[in-house]
Amino acid sequence: MPLLVPPAPAPALMSVLAALSSPTAVMEIRTPALRNAEGPLDAEHPLPVHVFEPAPVQGGLPQARLTGWRFHIRAGAGVAAAGETVATPDGWVFSRFSEGPYLVSTERALRQAETLPAMYQPHLLSVPGLYMMALWLHVDPRADAATAQPDPSDLLIPLAPAPPGITSHRVHRLVELVPALSPRLAAPPLLGSPA
C-alpha cells in the first residue's frame, strides 16, 4: 500500500533547494556523487528525522523528538545524495549534503514499506547510542509529523548497516525492538553517530 509521506515545512525545502542552486555549496561538499552529478538536481522524498529519547515512565515507549528533515537529491534517474535540514530557533536551515550506505538502504526500506498491507506515515529514526538508523512506519498516516509519537502498532525497518543483534531490512514491530533500544537511549551519542 502506498505510504502517506507528510509534507515538509516550506522553509526546510527552500533551504535545500537554495543549497542545490549554490555552486559553492555543491562544489565544496564531500559527496562525490553529487559533485559529479550531471543534469538538474531536485529534492524529493522528504522524511522527518526523529531521535528516540527515554520513555517518560519505566517500561513505556520511547518518545520521539523531531530534529530535522532529509530529502533525497535526484540527479537524472538516480538518487545521488541526501540534503538535510535542522531546526534552529530561527526556523529550518540547511545542514549538509551526505551520501553513503544509509541513503541506499533508505531507498530499499521505502520500497519494502510500500509492499505492506496497511498505510503508514514514514519517518527516519536515529538512535545515536546504537549508531542506528531505521525507517519508522507510524500507524497514523495523517499524524502531524512534528508531534508524532511512537505507538505500539508502529513498525521499524532498521537500515544497513545495523548494530550487532539487530537485523537490517527486517520489519520489526516497535515493541519488539524497545528492549534493545531502551538501555542506549539515555547514553550519550557516539562520536560520528547519525543523529
Rank of each mutant, 00 (worst) to 15 (best):
A81P: 08
L177R: 01
A25C: 06
A33T: 05
F97Q: 07
Q121P: 11
L191A: 12
I157K: 07
R70W: 04
A109Q: 04
P117L: 14
W69G: 03
M133E: 15
R173D: 15
L125M: 13
L17V: 12
P163S: 12
L174K: 04
H72A: 14
V51S: 08
S22P: 08
A145Y: 07
M132Q: 13
M119A: 15
L61C: 12
A37N: 05
L190I: 08
W92M: 09
T167L: 11
L17S: 06
V16T: 05
G68I: 04
M14K: 05
P62H: 00
R170K: 14
S168G: 09
M132Y: 06
H172L: 08
P163W: 03
P9C: 11
S22C: 12
V104W: 06
V178N: 10
L34K: 03
D90P: 00
Q149W: 12
M1D: 07
E44W: 00
A75L: 02
H123P: 12
D42V: 05
A187L: 10
A148I: 06
A162M: 02
P46Q: 00
P89K: 03
Q58S: 14
A143H: 01
A80K: 00
A145F: 11
G78L: 08
V5R: 04
L125G: 13
A160K: 00
W136G: 15
P40E: 14
V49Q: 09
L66N: 03
G60P: 10
H50Y: 13
D151L: 06
P117A: 14
S153F: 07
T31D: 15
V127S: 13
E107D: 13
V49I: 08
A87Y: 02
T147E: 09
V171S: 06
A134Q: 03
A145P: 10
G83L: 11
L174Q: 05
E44Y: 00
W69V: 07
L137P: 11
L130Y: 04
T24M: 07
G39D: 07
P189A: 13
P54M: 07
P32W: 01
P117E: 14
L156G: 12
W136I: 12
A160V: 01
L66G: 02
D144L: 08
V16G: 08
M132L: 15
V175E: 15
A18F: 01
P40C: 07
S15D: 11
Q63C: 10
P62S: 00
Y120I: 02
V57M: 13
P161M: 05
D140R: 02
D42R: 08
